[in-house]
Every structure is written in structure tokens, then in C-alpha cells.
Amino acid sequence: MSTYDGKTRLMLNSYIFIAYQTIVIKEVRRFLRIWVQTLVPPVITIALYFVIFGNLIGSRIGKMGGYSYMEFIVPGLIMMAVINNAYANVVSSFFSQKFQKSIEELLVAPVPNYVILLGFVTGGVARGLCVGLIASLISLVFSGVHMHNIFITAIVILLGSVVFSLGGFINAVYARNFDDISIIPTFVLTPLIYLGGVFYSVDTLPPLARHISQFNPIFYMVNAFRYGILGISDVSIGLSMGLLTLLTVVMFAFSLRLLYTGKGLRN
């Protein structure tokens, strides 16, 4: 495609933008159409966490990092909702399109691979942010409003949802059946999230567990997000942001490579 002159190139770019827009609209329409499956369950789960951990048990735990337990877990719970949903959206949408072969609609069309990837990732980010917004609104019922650094909060939530959308995409590309798309979330993602410092500060852990936590990428995301909202973090914020950016770049490149090699898509 490099042989095109400037004018044609410009025209192609507008075609490509329309294709991107089309994928995003399709993805958003999908999760809104099945909102009972996509938006309601995370909201109920989050509300239960707030009531049980934050309100009932939390009141007996006392302060953590200088904040009430409820205030301490709010950022982690919001982050958990965002990354879970970003991941779930891409993995289920891409895999079901692959499974029923409607992904061929995209593969036969002149849509560049990076646009396919960006489209699905944007869909995942949209659902992640949508659920994150609802979770934040619910949190207002239980806890006061805090915002230490809106810039860091926004960057972390955006990159976090991009990373997990990419994770969902990679999972979907390798998946051969519906079991494969639930194994990773259940056996890898959930333990990483629960051990990633959503419910506690690593200071409360024994030294070995604290050391192991440092290999968990979600630990850095939760802490960076908590820093953005409350201004407290178990790790250096620079390190967290650096790692998050690195993870985004590496996973994007890897996903794109999967698309170019046609893994699981083109025979």
C-alpha cells in the first residue's frame, strides 16, 4: 500500500477511519444489547463488596494507610471492575466471532490488522470505563469523594483497560473452545487480582508474600490507581507507570504479530 500517492493515501485513511469506527460501534452495540449479562453482574458484585467488606467487616478493621478501610478498598474495587470487564469484553466478543466465523467479515475486507486490533481494544476499554463509572457512582454512596491526581487516575485506568483488553484478545486468539476463554480468567486473572493488593496494603503481608507480590502486574496497577485517588501507594508511582506503559507496548506488538501471522484465523 506504500505505492499510493498523497491524495489516495488521504482517501485511504478516511476509509480506514470509517472501518475503525464501524468496529467500535459494533462492539459497543454488542455489550449494550446484552447489558443484563455485561453491565448488571459487575455492578451487583461491586455493590456487595462495598456492603460486606467495606461496611460490615471494614468497620472492625480500622484504618489502613491513613484512610478508613472502605476508602482504602474503593480504588482497588473500581480498578478490578474495569480490568475484569475490559478483558471479558474482548475475549468473549472476539472468540465468539471467531467461533461463528463472522470474523471473516473483517478478514475479507480491506481493514488493516492494526485497525482490527484497535477496534476491539477500544470496545473493551469502552465497557471497562462504563462499568468503572457505574462502580464509582456506587462508591459515592458508601465513601466520600477523593481525587489526589486526576491525570494519573485517568492514565492508569486507560492503560489498565487497554492492557487487559489486549490480554483478552490474546486469550481469544489462542482459544479453541469456550473452556479456554474461562480458564485464564478463573485460574490466572482472579488470583492475580485478589493478591494484587485490592483488599490490603502489602505492608500487612509477611516479607516473602510481599516479595512475591512484586511480580504481580496488577499490584502495580492497583497501587498506581490508588495513588491517583488517595495519594497513597505501596510502590513508586514512576515504576508503576513505567511498567504499565511497557506492558501496553509489548502486548500490543504481540497481539499485532498474532494477527499478521493469522494465528487461529487464517489457515
Partner: peptide, 10 residues
Amino acid sequence: VTQGGYYGLP
């Protein structure tokens, strides 16, 4: 319509 969008149709 979605398929048209993939081909760049407004």
C-alpha cells in the same frame, strides 16, 4: 451496513 463500514463506506 457494518460490512459496508469495513469497506470504508460512509
